[in-house]
């Protein structure tokens, strides 16, 4: 009976830690990552696209009931082509909302009201995306196979990142790969 959906239930801010992510994949990644960690009392807010991270999004979020009790905010986005540009955009938004601004990605700042950290995939230093970080975790054998497969099938057109193609190829055969 619990699957019955009688009505649309709007999302409320109820936890002291809010993690802002780009989309569903990021949400699942963070949830899996934090499953075995001590971080428990958090909630994830999806932007549904990096472009939606802007002043009006953050100002609406900070006005929601329940936001007054939020202590920690993590903003997790892709670094994309340039880490500095992505970070600068986040800094601009935080500044406009009078929120504390971290010095660099991966560092946490604190103004006694909020602790804020900006985390840019894959590692806060290199350009790229969440896919780059995930692909890094593949074992060498699997990686070789997929690279060979992509090359042979001429799958990667160059339009998207190679990591995305590698990851999707991996997902397509997940559970069937030889273990390292």
């Amino acid at each position: 009976m619990s699957n019955l959906n009688y009505e649309f239930i709007p999302k409320e801010i109820t936890k002291p830690t809010v993690i802002i992510v780009e989309g569903k994949d990021d949400e699942q990644f963070i949830e899996s990552l934090l499953k075995d960690s001590k971080v428990r009392n958090y909630q994830i807010v999806r932007l549904n696209g990096k472009g939606n991270f802007n002043v009006r999004f953050m100002s609406a979020l900070t006005k929601l009931s329940g936001f007054d009790t939020v202590k920690n905010i993590a903003i997790v986005l892709d670094a994309d082509e340039r880490v500095e540009n992505s970070f600068k955009k986040v800094r601009t938004v935080l500044k406009r909302l009078n929120l504390p601004i971290p010095v660099k990605p991966g560092e946490i700042t604190n103004d006694n009201k909020h602790r804020i950290g900006v985390f840019l995939f894959p590692d806060c230093e290199t350009p790229g995306s969440i896919e780059d970080l995930i692909v890094r975790s593949f074992n060498e054998e699997a990686r070789k196979c997929i690279d060979k497969y992509i090359k042979c099938m001429k799958l990667h057109s160059g339009a998207t990142s190679i990591s995305k193609s590698i990851l999707y190829s991996y997902i397509a055969v997940q559970g069937q790969l030889p273990t390292a």
Binding site: F8, E12, R46, N52, R56, S59, A60, L61, K63, D68
Partner: peptide, 26 residues
Amino acid sequence: LNEEIITKEFSNDELKVVFKAGFEIR
């Protein structure tokens, strides 16, 4: 907020975000 009643004013742009993201506002 801290036992005081306060008002939060929402602009049209902020309301767009609220309804797009499905945030609770009531």
